Structure formats: C-alpha cells, structure tokens
Simulated scan of single mutants.
Amino acid sequence: MEQFYLAALQMVPGIGSSRMKVLIDYFGSARQTWLADQGDLFLSKCIDTAICNNLLSCRDKIDIHKLADTLFKKGISLCTLTADNYPSLLQNSFNPPYVLYYRGTLPATDKLIAIVGARKATAYGKNAASMLAAALAAAGVGIVSGAARGIDTAAHQGALEQQGYTIAVLGSGVDVAYPPENKNLLASIAETGAVVSEYAPGTMAHPGHFPARNRIINALARGVIVVEAAEKSGALITADFALEEGRDVFAVPGSIFANTSKGANKLLKLGAKPVDCATDILEEYGWENFSVKPTTLALSAEEQAIYGLLNYDEPMSIEEIVTKLKVLPATAAYILLQLSLRGLTVEHSAQRYTRAAREGIE
C-alpha cells in the first residue's frame, strides 16, 4: 500500500517531490508520514504550518483504500520514483514527480523524442509533425507529446499510423480527456503506448498545470523538436526545460511571415538544430541504421490528377478541385476518400484537403 500513500501525499498542495523526500526520510515511509499526528508533523520542521494544515485536511478527505480501489476499477496504474519501471530519463531529471499515474505501458527504453508545437497549427505544421513522428516511429523511436490540439495531436497520430509507441503527458488526470475531442486518440495511445500524468485521477485540466506538464514531456525524451510555435508559447517553455536538463533542442524551419513560426525560427537563431526529415534525428543519436525506402505510388489517372493538384501547405476545397479539373463533385469526393484511406491526404475543416506528408513517397 506504500505507493498509494505516496500518491495521497502528492495530492497535498505544497508537497512536491523534494518535500516528500524530506518527509519520508524523517518518518521512515509515506504511510508513517500520512498517519503522523499534528504534533509530530510540527516537530519534524519538514513543512510549515500552512502545508501541515493542507496535509491534515487532505487526510480527512482521502480514504487510501478507496483510492486504491478506484484506480484498480479505472485501469490506472501507479509508478513511484524508486520503482524499476520508472522512466530512466525522467527519474534522473531535476524535478521528477514522485508518483506517475498511467494507462498503458511505460517505456522500456530511452529511445524517445518529444514533438511539440502550436495548438493553432497550420496545415504545414501538422503535416510536418505527423511526417516526422511517423518516420521516427517506423525507426523504433517513441514519440512524446502532450495530446493538445494541433501539433501534439498530429505527432501522436503520425506515430500511431506506423503502429509506433507514443506517450501522451496530460495536464489533467489520465481519466480526463482533454481536449474532449481527443478521447478516442487517448484511448488508442493507451492501447499501445502510455497516457501519463502526475495529477490524480479526476483532476481537470487547468492552465497552471501545463508548464509542469511540459517539464515531464521534456524530461522523458532525449531531445525536443519544436515544429511551430509563436514567440510566447508552451512549446518554448518545453524547449527552455530541455536546455535546463541538458536535452537537445531541434526546430522545424517555418515561413518568415507566419506568426506560428516565429518561435521555432527564433530557436534556430539561438542555436537549435534544424530538422526537415527524420534522418536528422536518427543521425544525431546514432540510430541511422534505419533508412526510409522510397515508395512509388500506384495511382490511377484520376487519382494522380487530384493528388498532383494538392500540396502540403494550403488546404484546397472540393469546389476548387472540381473547377480546376472539371470533374463531377461526387467523383472528386470519392477519389479524395480513397486517397485518405490510403493515408495520402488529410481532410481539414470545411472539406478542405492537403497531401499527407510522408518521407520516402515519390
């Protein structure tokens, strides 16, 4: 039951990893800390009066056995900082959470790269994130991101497309789908990868949680790729954490006219390593024994006409395709569906389409 007492202590406002360690060293275990009376807590001088009161208040509200039962019923596991399966890179970072909640399977290797970026991403940015994640996943590299809208979602989807391993780090409990539209995505990630959080189940997403979430994204990975980011964004916070932890920072170059690329381009000016294909990452870490084999597409004349019309940056509507190629709307819609099922196109809002960027497709 010690791990559940650790989880309960981590829920106490003001008790972080460093204070938890001090308390456990003093009292001998998380259980003894949790059960200590008020006088002993004050005498320990490990925590101040406010945090002591927080602990006593939480102790009145949290039933340890009920907590364990709830986690079991929800299929949520715990991993403590000293456990053998605690992710090694995170374990050796500056401020790892004492307890990780997770659904799925924690990584058994440190062959992990984080991909982060703007929530309000462009078609170019989402295509780049998905392409890099897919190629890295095919090379056996795990993809870490935050399951947010935009770049994060594209990165997870790219990894899953290759049946690769991916980790979603949440700023909520692992049983809370945020954003709500990613509920199915998170379920898919939990089947073959991991959904992790330092926040207790049932904890709703909150703006204050995301900077802390970003430090875990960074600490889990060997390096961080920033695909698109404004000058002030969470992705840059993740990059800052990466630098503090001695991790590598990579950036995908973007348009000099796009606000969503100003942050990534600034990182490049400051010395981040430019990335335009997975090989850049594989060579950096000596993982280059994998190479993307060129694939020639077998397309019919009608499919080739529509595929050739699309690009990777600017979504095109069915109406534009019909006008330019002089085909029936139903024909265009059917062909786009077939291309999408083959993973060759991406549908954006209002039935607008781009090519799906994939390395090695000729």
Rank of each mutant, 00 (worst) to 15 (best):
V174M: 10
V174E: 05
V174I: 12
D175L: 00
V176M: 15
Y178H: 04
Y178K: 01
Y178F: 14
P179L: 05
P179Q: 02
P180G: 04
E181D: 07
K183I: 03
K183E: 11
K183Y: 07
N184L: 06
N184F: 05
L185M: 02
L185F: 09
L186S: 03
A187Q: 15
S188G: 01
I189L: 14
A190E: 08
T192V: 04
A194N: 09
A194W: 12
V195C: 05
V195I: 13
V196H: 04
V196A: 04
V196N: 02
S197R: 12
Y199A: 04
Y199I: 02
P201Q: 05
G202L: 11
T203A: 12
T203D: 06
A205H: 02
H206G: 00
H209E: 02
H209Q: 05
F210M: 00
F210W: 00
A212M: 10
A212R: 14
A212V: 14
A212W: 04
N214K: 12
N218V: 13
N218T: 15
A219L: 10
A219E: 02
A219V: 06
L220A: 12
R222E: 07
R222T: 04
G223W: 08
G223T: 09
G223D: 02
I225R: 04
V227W: 10
V227Y: 09
V227C: 11
E228F: 14
A229W: 06
K232C: 05
K232G: 11
S233I: 11
S233D: 13
G234I: 13
G234H: 08
A235V: 05
A235S: 15
A235T: 06
L236P: 08
T238L: 05
T238R: 06
T238E: 01
D240G: 09
F241D: 12
A242P: 10
L243N: 03
E244S: 13
E244M: 05
E245N: 11
E245L: 15
G246R: 06
